[in-house]
Amino acid sequence: MEVGTILMNRYEIGRLLGQGDLAKVYYAQDLTSGQGVAIKMIDKDKVSSVELMVRIKREITLMNLLRHPNLLKLVEVTASKIKLYFVLEYPKDGDLYTKNVIGRLSEDAARKYFHQLIGAVEYCHSQGVYHRNLNLENILLDENGNLKISDFGLSVLPGSREDGLFHYPCGTPAYVAPEVLSWRGYDGAKVDIWSCGVILFALVAGYLPFQGTDRTDLFNKISLGKYECPSWISVKLKDIQYYVRFLI
């Protein structure tokens, strides 16, 4: 879509922010409020499977259901004959992955982000919602340094578990919990907490705790809990990691 295009008589399209196999995301200005927004555009002809359409509808339902200052806000959803449009809050300062690539954070800075992260995750769980794909790329930052959890495409609605467990493995490989890899079912809350722990480690270490030469090697290390803390992590934080692992 060309820069300057007016969409729905309201949004002036700006630069391309990113794209994937299914969608493109553009920056846009809301001409009624002057606020910047992000617009996720999905070609309808790419939504070829029933499963994918169900996933998109579920994401819309969840984003309308959840209201928390550290969750990305869905402004509205609309459509044309050929496209779906998600109009989203636009956090200006990128994502935690980019910040982490620049360099590791101090423990004080990491504590601030982690506190916001677990507060938002706790809220989701209180509503019966489990994200199942928490990672650095899905955590965005606004201009005030507040994080916004995004991408609820793999999240699940309240009451969607049959036996109290989920059986469909999903998530970003380096962040998944060991039980997701076991194919014996897993608790949605616990795997989200595990991913939060991976994120905390990455923020203070500057790299992910589990890395492998290939996916098999990576999953083996996750299953064994095989990682090492860098020397610069404080004893206090190492103790916290021990107790978190024990509780999980």
Rank of each mutant, 00 (worst) to 15 (best):
M8A: 13
M8D: 11
E12I: 12
I13V: 15
R15Q: 13
L16E: 12
D21Q: 08
V25K: 10
Q29G: 02
G34E: 02
I42N: 02
D43L: 12
K44M: 05
K46Q: 12
V50H: 06
L52T: 12
L52R: 07
M53T: 04
V54C: 06
I56K: 09
T61K: 13
T78R: 09
A79G: 03
V87H: 02
V87T: 07
L88A: 04
Y90Q: 11
P91I: 05
G94Y: 09
Y97F: 14
V101S: 03
E107S: 04
D108M: 07
K112C: 10
H115F: 08
H115G: 01
G119T: 15
V121K: 08
S126P: 03
Q127V: 10
N133F: 01
L136W: 03
E137H: 11
E137Y: 04
L140N: 05
L141H: 03
G145C: 06
G145H: 10
L147S: 04
S150N: 06
D151G: 09
F152E: 01
G153T: 05
R161A: 15
R161I: 14
T172Q: 10
T172H: 12
A177C: 03
K190H: 10
K190M: 15
I193E: 02
C196E: 09
Y207K: 15
Q211E: 15
P230L: 04
S231C: 08
S231F: 13
W232L: 00
L237C: 12
L247P: 00
I248H: 08
